[in-house]
Nucleic acid binder design. Structure first.
Length: 280
DNA sequence: CGGGCGGCCTGGAGGC
DNA sequence: TGCCTCCAGGCCGCCC
């Protein structure tokens, strides 16, 4: 569930409390994640290092260390980073403890183990296996309607699939792809290559707006998202279509529909997001 | 070779 | 109340 706004929320929360703290121990209770965790790599680059910055790339949280190595964390579906007192009792899925010099801890909890925890050597982030192929950041200058328009010419794949393809655009998952398409008035099955420039102008703006608002709301908590302080987000109250099949559209009253694309639920308003033809 | 899709995983919801 | 099935979905790696 964590998409860009949730990851950014976690990043901001951590940034406030862990800059300047030194990692004095790492306790690893589980290594079976999306990719096997490598304890030696973690220890090599992180032990006795001070956290210099907390950054984000796509849906990854990055801690830049004083030696310029990076701690890389992906929350997957159910991952959580919690900031807590080291004396707090461990819970069932608390898999990794980063013990800090002052007795506080950063813990990685992940029931479904879809997450990733890794360390990358100084200067190697750009060529890091999981970063090399990543697409455009929605808040970068490159994320411009003209660029997106140009890159999608000739593509027949549905626009929603394109938005969720991390090789093209990062950070936009199922919830925000659906919400952005609704706000831009574009049907999720419309061919990406058929979007005229003015649609891309509305869509690019809608994507940024939805992500910004969600960040300002502390993310979306539907099931299991909590920030590093254990607090819920509240963007779920602003969702217009996601998870609302059968309900009336806020804007026009038509019934919101659900279809499946790439094995995932897409929600849209058939009236506000017509499949073909011009809308005003 | 772009892009669809299987499978990884567990908890919670819903059916009976 | 308890067991079973299904669903959630990011993303790598396979395969068409």
């Amino acid at each position: 569930m964590p998409e860009l706004p949730e990851v950014e929320t976690v990043r901001r929360g951590l940034q406030r409390v862990i800059i300047g703290k030194k990692i004095s121990a790492i306790h690893i209770h589980e290594t079976r994640f999306r990719f096997p965790l490598q304890p030696k790599v973690l220890c090599k680059w992180l032990m006795q290092q001070t956290i210099a910055a907390v950054e984000r790339r796509a849906k990854y949280v990055l801690c830049r260390m004083s030696n310029d190595a990076h701690l890389v964390i992906h929350l997957g579906m159910s991952g959580r980073l919690l900031w807590c007192d080291g004396r707090r009792e461990l819970e069932k899925h608390d898999h990794i403890q980063f013990v800090l010099e002052d007795g506080d801890e950063l813990r990685f909890r992940d029931p479904r183990r879809f997450g990733l925890v890794d360390a990358v050597a100084p200067g190697k982030l750009e060529e890091y296996k999981h970063f090399r192929h990543l697409g455009i950041e929605p808040f970068s200058a490159e994320f411009a309607p003209e660029v997106l328009f140009e890159r999608t010419r000739g593509l027949v794949r549905p626009i929603k699939n394109y938005l969720m393809d991390a090789n093209k655009i990062v950070g936009v998952g199922n919830i925000y792809a659906n919400e952005a398409l609704f706000r831009a008035g574009i049907h999720p099955e419309k061919a990406a290559g058929k979007l005229p420039l003015h649609d891309w102008q509305r869509l690019a703006k809608a994507i940024r707006k939805v992500l910004e608002t969600a960040i300002a709301s502390g993310g979306t908590t539907l099931n299991d998202f909590y920030n590093s302080e254990g607090e819920m987000g509240y963007f779920q109250q602003y969702l217009k279509v996601y998870n609302r099949a059968g309900e009336a559209c806020d804007r026009c009253g038509a019934t919101i529909r659900r279809i499946v694309q790439l094995g995932r639920s897409s929600y849209f308003c058939p009236q506000c997001q017509p499949k073909a033809g011009k809308k005003k």
